[in-house]
Design a protein around this nucleic acid. Structure first.
Lengths: 254, 254
DNA sequence: ATTGACTTTAACGTTGCGTAAAGGTTTACA
DNA sequence: TGTAAACCTTTACGCAACGTTAAAGTCAAT
């Protein structure tokens, strides 16, 4: 009827460290100790441990287990239901992680198969990945998965010549913007040229262009810390300037 | 182009502590520090952080991320696939946890509805739960879910009178076994009586009785630490004695 | 008497930060 | 120009549930 720590551990299929830990946190103390300080467990402790391990296998935390087994009046069903909700949430998270991982694997493998213009394809892919990582969630929320997917598709279908044009144009936008900013006038020719270049740049990946969407995006550049970090890199308030220029260009404000 | 720690944190949507931690573990160090020791990050660091956060969102551990981003030749697809396997395993575990939690909730609620002989029902339920917790997995593996479920069902359907007989009989088995053990002979009348009592005790929960199954169970008592802890509680090798008696009784060995 | 199996406490390591605490720096405003 | 607000720094404990030494005492058997 009396068990030393190792015997109990073997019976229960756990480690002695676990039993010492449970003793330490007061979850399961031995019935007594012998003259040399050895822990001695009795039948009651075996039963308690059984209970503990039962709930532990359900993934319940030790503190909750303590409540459950210490107080017989404790509402175990309620505790289990709360626990079930937590498990369901965890699984949801896991599922979305899995979807993303799958997607990334597929993308990565797509890159591997088309090893013809490998480096170039890699660039495109990298760009898509980066954009997804940076703005993916929010942009998808705002514009829907469809628009983003189409945009990515369009990017992936670009030839290396088109892609070069695209990046080239992006640099032009930045350079022109920098020039235009010096004029201080978002209505200036230079600023309006920037807005037009920006539009051309956008249409490389946008499925359909609309002045409204363009104007909205311009405001987004200002609102979003991360967009602003890109455009404000050299001088502050460049993002605002670009927005104003685009609003004038499109004739829309929001 | 230069970011202080907080600016970078805001851009990336993380905490400054995280950036300091990444610095500490050498995952992402600032480009330089200014005269007062402030961390200054450049464009390259922003891009690296982007990569880091991308993989982090997939649930990849920081050490693996380090490998992935430090070495451009690293096989990212392979790493992601390994990661996917881990995620799938986690989800499997979660799912089985959920099944068990559901079952427990159902059982618990079943107990709540039949509050007529509540305490008694509680005992039965407790017994089922305990058995499931102690031996559930292995017994189910060996004999199949069906046998175990039927056994539990049979137990649940017992009236309080039958249940009393059942526990009474269990005590008798133990007492007779203790007596028989003193004779030292598993073929003795007392030992054979024990075997028969044990059979009667079994048929309370077993759907169908067979001598083979009985003999197998007897061996299990010996092989399994936990069963043995129950029968060997008072004297060692009692489990072996019981096994021998049953083997003689059933005429089977295995 | 010695070996081997067992026990004890103490304390660090794990993962990815959160959260003070104590003190220096920079910036903005009166 | 003073000072308060908002930054920045390092140091270090806390979390969940133990695993893993390490140093030292105990027990059973040869």
């Amino acid at each position: 009827m009396d068990f030393t720590i190792q015997k109990l551990a073997k019976i229960a299929g756990i480690s002695t460290r676990t039993l010492r830990y449970y003793d330490e946190i007061g979850l399961l103390m031995p019935a007594r100790t012998n003259s040399s300080g050895y822990r001695i467990y009795g039948q009651w402790e075996v039963d308690q441990l059984q209970q503990i391990l039962f709930y532990r296998e359900l993934g319940v935390g030790l503190e909750v287990i303590r409540e459950i087994i210490m107080d017989p009046a404790f509402d175990k069903a309620k505790a289990l239901k709360r626990h079930r909700e937590q498990l369901l949430n965890k699984r949801k998270q896991l599922d979305s992680l899995l979807v993303n991982v799958e997607k990334t694997i597929a993308l990565t493998e797509g890159r591997i198969t088309m090893s013809d213009e490998e480096k170039f394809e890699g660039f495109k892919q990298q760009m898509i990945d980066d954009n997804e990582a940076r703005y993916g969630n929010e942009v998808r929320e705002k514009y829907g998965d469809d628009a983003v997917n189409k945009s990515n598709e369009k990017l992936k279908k670009m030839t290396s010549k088109e892609f070069e044009e695209f990046t080239q144009l992006g640099n032009e936008v930045k350079a022109t913007l920098s020039e235009a900013f010096k004029t201080g006038d978002p209505a200036s020719d230079m600023a309006q040229k920037t807005a037009e270049l920006h539009k051309r740049w956008l249409t490389f990946t946008w499925d359909t262009y609309s002045k409204e969407a363009h104007a909205v995006l311009a405001q987004m550049y200002v609102d979003d810390e991360r967009f602003r970090a890109y455009y404000d890199a050299e001088q502050p308030s460049v993002a605002e300037f670009l927005r104003d220029a685009i609003h004038i260009y499109t004739g829309f404000k929001n």
